[in-house]
């Protein structure tokens, strides 16, 4: 059965900023828990050489706040003109209340603007674009999507399935109502897989790597096929959630995508969960200018299980940047 395609008109991607904590961690961190041979084997498979960790005091909101401030400033958006923000994370600052309320206040947005949290991980970014672009159809003109995670706080250093893999990152994305552009989405969920990546209350992250792999290689190729069909052909570039290198290389081969159309950056940042797609985009376009719109597909898949794809055009005047904040 073909997956349900959702098309949203009149939405423009104005800018993306990603933010990393300035604490770069290499694989030597794990030398007290693993032998050198084990480290090199795990690193070869996950593909992660470096990742960035927040300090114990830093929260996901700190990363997203700095990204959003920079973005609002560079876009020259009046605070009062922003209709609302959506914060997407699996690592909110607190269990209660929603982190978005605090972010709305710290950004100085109007108390008339909406603010709410969504709990999604690997599939967060296309989902966020869909929710925000849909809100633009019902009265909002400018919406911020803040997406980020600090999974480093949920890692057991001795767990080979998760210890090496994850890094922290936050992002801010600005969408506005504009008549000449649209986005297409395919979204899905299968809760049968809900136990395969999880963190119980006050517990650390657990992951069943082989189940996640089975899910990804059986779901993602079809997702990609459908989003390409909706586009009337291949996209110029594919930004995949940076899950792990072995899986990404396998999916690239299975989906027959060439290297040039398939950016990878997991080596330098690890799997940054919900922030991996915006981080990959801003990283890829750093110091690259383009004159014509670039047709891109965004592919998110994992925890939930949940999956999402977005098809859109990046316009040459989009603002993109990647910033760092000090770890106090």
């Amino acid at each position: 059965m073909p997956e349900l395609l959702k098309k949203v008109d009149n939405v423009n991607l104005e800018g993306i900023v990603t933010c990393l904590p300035l604490n770069k961690v290499d694989n030597n961190l794990f030398e007290d828990k693993f032998s050198k041979k084990e480290i090199s084997q795990i690193a070869a498979s996950t593909g992660v050489k470096l990742r960035y960790y927040t300090s114990p005091q830093q929260k996901t909101s700190d990363l997203c706040l700095e990204a959003a401030k920079h973005l609002i400033n560079k876009l020259n958006w009046e605070k009062e003109s922003i209709d609302g923000l959506i914060f997407i994370t699996q690592t909110p600052d607190k269990l209660i209340p929603a982190t978005s309320n605090k972010l709305q206040f710290l950004l100085g947005l109007s108390s008339q603007s909406f603010a709410f949290d969504i709990n999604l991980g690997c599939s967060a970014y296309p989902y966020g674009l869909w929710v925000a672009s849909s809100l633009l159809q019902t009265g909002a003109k400018r919406v911020l999507i803040l997406v980020g995670d600090t999974i480093s706080k949920l890692i057991k250093k001795e767990d080979r399935a998760t210890a090496f893999l994850f890094g922290d990152a936050g992002s801010a994305t600005a969408l506005s109502l504009k008549s000449d552009s649209s986005m297409k989405f395919i979204l899905g969920s299968d809760g049968q897989g809900s136990e395969n990546i999880k963190a119980e209350y006050k517990e650390k992250l657990e992951m069943n790597g082989s189940k996640v792999f089975e899910f990804s290689i059986s779901r993602v190729p079809e997702l990609l096929k459908q989003i390409d069909l909706s586009n009337g052909g291949k996209h110029d570039l594919y930004f995949f959630h940076q899950a792990n290198k072995f899986m990404l290389n396998y999916l690239k081969k299975k989906c027959q995508i060439n290297n040039e159309s398939f950016p990878l950056n997991i080596e330098n940042y690890g799997n940054t969960s919900s922030a991996s797609i915006p981080l990959l985009i801003t990283d890829y376009f750093k110091n690259k200018k383009f004159k014509e719109a670039i047709n891109i597909a965004l592919i998110g898949f994992g925890v939930g299980f949940s999956w999402s794809a977005a098809s859109l055009d990046l316009k040459p005047n989009i603002f993109m940047d990647k910033i760092f904040i000090n770890t106090k």
Binding site: S45, R160, G209, S210, K211, F213, E214, I217, K253, K254
Partner: peptide, 22 residues
């Protein structure tokens, strides 16, 4: 180990179009 299991799932999918489970 888990890396071997995942490699095996990938190879069975690629070579025989069969999905093995962990």
């Amino acid at each position: 180990d888990s890396l071997a299991v995942i490699s095996c799932i990938a190879l069975a999918d690629e070579k025989f179009n069969i999905m093995l489970s962990g």
